[in-house]
């Protein structure tokens, strides 16, 4: 058991190091995320000045939400991808991965957590500090609030991985995953709260979006940060979705192992 943990901890550490080979790309990402954060902040400020108290946020909450969501883009890979798996299935290299005496899903997860940790440092901190410096943002009060946010953020990464893993795994059944990728991108952008806080959506549609798994990625961690949501209820929501999606991923992995043609030679 301890061995297994050590193995996956190593893989996570190597995932971190592997991504550090692409520091320039990460810094360019941080720059883009920060600039878009500023643009979005002005839009939201205008909106909240016209409609104060919208969605239960004041202007500072809205600006904080904006920069937090920008900070989530890297670690939660909001625009999709981040896993090498899809490409490896398409090229047939996954045959090598399937040979290993390890779980494909846990392996990918460990690697992805390493990636997320690296991108947290390089792509989450800069836009957050910039937002704080330019506009002023909400800061959680006390260690308990920070711990709650850390847990919620990590669960957000976990849900994001589970969804992206399923998307990547679809390559086993369909030759090209571009359709699934773009569908997933649109769903993630709108249903995570990335484009607009989900609290803005009215009626049953709003209710629905707040119960779907994508909400666990941006909306819920941001609300936990802002102190707008009961912590235990929020974490339970995220844990349920993470567990359900990871279980689905495990089933899909098993089905892929059984049925499917490994491409090429």
């Amino acid at each position: 058991m301890e061995d297994v943990f050590l193995l996956y901890a190593r893989i996570a550490a190597y995932g971190f190091r592997r991504h550090s080979a692409y520091r320039a790309a990460a810094l360019a990402g941080a720059f883009t995320n920060s600039v878009f954060g500023i643009l979005r902040a002005y839009v939201l400020i205008a909106l909240w000045q016209a409609r104060p108290g919208l969605a239960g946020y004041d202007v500072t909450d809205a600006v904080t939400f904006c920069f937090l969501s920008q900070a989530f883009i890297g670690p939660m890979q909001v625009f999709g991808g981040g896993l090498q798996l899809a490409g490896r299935v398409r090229s047939g290299d996954v045959a090598v991965d399937l040979l290993r005496p390890a779980s494909l899903q846990l392996w990918s997860l460990a690697d992805d957590l390493g990636r997320a940790a690296y991108l947290f440092l390089l792509r989450s901190l800069p836009p957050t500090f910039l937002g704080a410096a330019l506009f002023g943002i909400v800061v959680p009060a006390g260690p308990a609030a920070w711990a709650a946010f850390a847990a919620s953020f990590t669960l957000g990464v976990l849900v994001s991985f589970a969804l992206r893993y399923l998307t990547a795994l679809s390559c086993f059944w369909i030759v090209d995953d571009q359709g699934v990728q773009s569908l997933s991108l649109v769903l993630t952008l709108f249903l995570s709260g990335m484009v607009l806080p989900l609290n803005l959506f009215p009626g049953w549609f709003g209710e629905l979006t707040r119960t779907l798994p994508w909400a666990a990625m941006v909306q819920v961690p941001a609300d936990v940060y802002l102190g707008k949501r009961d912590v235990l209820e929020a974490l339970a929501f995220q844990i349920s979705w993470a567990a359900a999606l990871l279980a689905l991923g495990a089933l899909a992995t098993r089905a892929a192992r059984r049925k499917v043609v490994v491409q090429g030679g």
Binding site: L6, L7, R10, Y14, R17, R100
Partner: peptide
Amino acid sequence: FGQRTTLWWDLPLKDSFQLIRYL
């Protein structure tokens, strides 16, 4: 598999061997 590699593309060769030791 001569046309594929089990090694980690972005890591030094010796790191791949370490991972394989754990694996």
